[in-house]
Nucleic acid binder design. Structure first.
Lengths: 193, 193
DNA sequence: CTGTTTTGTAAGTGTATACTTACATCATAG
DNA sequence: CTATGATGTAAGTATACACTTACAAAACAG
């Protein structure tokens, strides 16, 4: 009858912009005015695409997860002799914090106590954990079966390693090179058990 | 000439209350009204003790660091056969996140981009890192000198392990017991090199 | 006692912010 | 062409917040 609704497509276009804003500014400082400006829109136009700021934040979590998962899947496909786990470690060491996922986590945990946001984060970490468990198992395929620490704990420790790397980066505690070395050395040590 | 100034003593009394509020609520949600209420004071009374909310936050960082450092020093003194590093790991595994230090970090990184806050956090992590390096060296005293990963990276990884444990706790990703096991198993694996 | 300084109580100020309303303009299906 | 729903522009609202001001009451030094 009239002009077609482009909302879904525009949401897809704007998600990266909004996610970046949340990652850079945190939840509170990413005001709806700031978000709109970065999107080149007015505030009410944003509110025609999402019902609330919280919904924009949830969309950002979803988006950043999808981006990272896609990147990792691509790294699995490319074979260069190293185990997939090693390739992912190397890539994360080089591009640590680039996606902003850890900053979204900090923002969600620190700035809200909203149950929806917490369960979105919970869900995201569970998915990463499951993925990494698969890679650790793959990497340890020909190790003796009682390798320690166990796969599940090792997978969490690897996520923690990435998080700490990001913090050393944000607080200028380590140089870029040392960050990469940390992910590599400690990462392999955890993988090998 | 007149009534003596008790400000310093009152600051000392209120620091734990304020630090707890910042840890629980984050920076923005810990409003000056909320802080005053928890202290049993009016807002302007708080402002007679600290010049700004930021100063209260900085005092909280300092306070929580001192508390944790004191606890660790006490653990060093008590000898039960395990290495000091193991004792600290065990204690942190049991009391993870209790102090709220990691939440303060999240709040500082996510909710502000104030250079004073960042350098306070930077300073704090440097001190913890130095402390842990000492313990790792002690623990590895009779290991071969080229133990890998290096002491410095290992120390950062141990801090990262603690941080990840706190996140699994906050997001209900692991049970209390599994958290303790993670700190123990992965911690020892990192310590032993 | 007295003069000075701290402490307590109450109210206010200016600004920022999530979200809304009103309305004009445009593009398309029919 | 036109009716309809999408898009753009502008302004507004209600609230929350960091920080301030004004002043009374209390406590101590002299």
């Amino acid at each position: 009858m009239a002009r077609p609704n482009q909302s879904e497509q525009r949401r897809d276009e704007l998600c990266p912009v909004i996610a970046k804003a949340f990652a850079e500014l945190g939840y509170r400082r990413a005001t709806t005015a700031a978000l709109a400006k970065r999107c080149g829109l007015r505030e009410n136009q944003l509110y025609r695409l999402w019902p609330s700021k919280k919904a924009m934040f949830l969309a950002s979590i979803e988006y950043l997860y999808e981006m990272t998962a896609a990147k990792w899947r691509a790294l699995l496909a490319s074979d260069d002799g190293r185990s997939p786990a090693e390739r992912i470690l190397a890539w994360e060491g080089e591009h640590r914090g680039e996606s902003g996922l850890h900053r979204i986590t900090f923002a969600g945990l620190s700035e809200t106590d909203d149950p929806d946001i917490r369960s979105a984060l919970q869900n995201m970490y569970r998915k990463f954990h499951t993925f990494i468990i698969g890679q650790v198992n793959e990497h340890r395929a020909d190790a003796k079966p009682d390798t320690q620490p166990g796969v599940e704990l090792t997978a969490w420790a690897i996520i923690g390693l990435g998080m700490m790397t990001n913090i050393t980066h944000e607080l200028d505690l380590l140089t870029h090179d040392t960050q990469g070395q940390m992910v590599h050395d400690v990462g392999l040590h955890l993988l090998d058990g």
